[in-house]
C-alpha cells in the first residue's frame, strides 16, 4: 500500500540572525492510509515544526516529503495553499474559529477558497453535510463565544472535514478541554478513522495518545521511538466506564 505520508531524512533549520536553530534533524517516517498516529514529545522536541511541514505550512530545509505520492518539499506558496485547501484538514488546540461568525459559516470557510470555485448551492450543501457530522445542526447560527470548548472543537473538526481531505492534522486538539470532553473528541476521531480517514495528532498527554494506533516520540529533532499502541483505548467504552464510575460514586 502506498503511504499517505513519506518523509525521508527531513531537516528543518531556522535562522535567528547568525544562529542556526535545528528544529528537525533528519526524520524519516511513513504513515499509511487509514492510520491514526500520535506524535509526542517535550516542547522544543521539533514535533510542531514537523507538523507544520506535513501541513504544508512550512517547507523543509532539506529532505523529501511526499503527500499522496506527490513531492511537497519544493512547492510554491500558492500551490501549498491549494494542497492545504484540498488535501489537509487542520484542528488546533485553541480551535482557531473566526470570531463573531456562525458555526455554519466557519465550517464553510475552506470552500470559499476552493479552486475551481464551487457554486453557492454546492458550498451550502457540503457545509450542511459537515455540520451534520459534528452533530451541531441545532447550533448552526451560534457564534463561537456561544459554544462550549468541546462544541467549538467540533466546529473546527467540521471545518477540517468539509473539503473531504486525505489527512487530518490535529495539534493538541484536547489541550484546552477537560478530560471528559477530550475523550469525546477522541471518540469523533476514532469514528472518522474507522471510516478510513488518516489522522496525525500531536499530544503530550499519554492517556490521549492511547486512543491512537501508533505513537511516534520525538526528542531534540529526532524520532526516538515509533511503536504501535499497547492496550489501545476505545473512546465509546471509556466514556461508558466513566459514566458508570460516576454513578457508583454517587
Amino acid at each position: 500500500m502506498q503511504p499517505v505520508i513519506q518523509l525521508e531524512n527531513l531537516v528543518k533549520t531556522y535562522h535567528a540572525g547568525e544562529v542556526e536553530i535545528p528544529a528537525v534533524r533528519g526524520v524519516s517516517l511513513e504513515v499509511l492510509p487509514g492510520e491514526f498516529v500520535a506524535v509526542m514529545g517535550a516542547s522544543g522536541s521539533g514535533k510542531s515544526t514537523l507538523m507544520n511541514v506535513i501541513g504544508c505550512l512550512d517547507r523543509p530545509t532539506s529532505g523529501r516529503y511526499s503527500l499522496d505520492g506527490v513531492e511537497m518539499s519544493q512547492l510554491e506558496a500558492d500551490a501549498q495553499a491549494d494542497i492545504r485547501n484540498r488535501k489537509i484538514g487542520f484542528v488546533f488546540q485553541n480551535f482557531n474559529l473566526l470570531a463573531r461568525t456562525s458555526t455554519l459559516e466557519n465550517i464553510e470557510l475552506p470552500l470559499l477558497y476552493s479552486r475551481p470555485s464551487l457554486c453557492r448551492q454546492e458550498q451550502r450543501a457540503r457545509a450542511l453535510n459537515a455540520l451534520a457530522m459534528t452533530g451541531l445542526t441545532d447550533r448552526s447560527a451560534h457564534h463561537p463565544n456561544q459554544l462550549s470548548g468541546g462544541q467549538q472543537q467540533r466546529v473546527a473538526i467540521g471545518r477540517a472535514l468539509v473539503n473531504r481531505p486525505e489527512l487530518l492534522l490535529a495539534d493538541e486538539p484536547t489541550g484546552n478541554l477537560d478530560t471528559r470532553t477530550g475523550i469525546e473528541i477522541m471518540g469523533i476521531f476514532q469514528n472518522l478513522n474507522r471510516m478510513g480517514l488518516t489522522i496525525i495528532m500531536v499530544t503530550h498527554e499519554p492517556h490521549i495518545a492511547r486512543f491512537c494506533q501508533r505513537t511516534v516520540v520525538m526528542r531534540d529533532g529526532h524520532i526516538i521511538s515509533n511503536d504501535p499502541v499497547q492496550h489501545r483505548l476505545d473512546a465509546t467504552s471509556k466514556l461508558e466506564q466513566e459514566r458508570l464510575a460516576l454513578q457508583l460514586a454517587s
Binding site: G55, L57, A77, D78, A81, D82, R84, N85, R86, F90, N96, L97, L98, A99, L109, P110, L112, Y113, S114, R159, N163
Partner: peptide, 16 residues
C-alpha cells in the same frame, strides 16, 4: 492577524 492566519491555513492564497 489571527483571522488571516486561519484563512491561510484553510487554503486561502495570498491574493485572496
Amino acid at each position: 492577524t489571527r483571522e488571516i492566519g486561519i484563512r491561510l491555513a484553510v487554503g486561502a492564497r495570498g491574493r485572496d
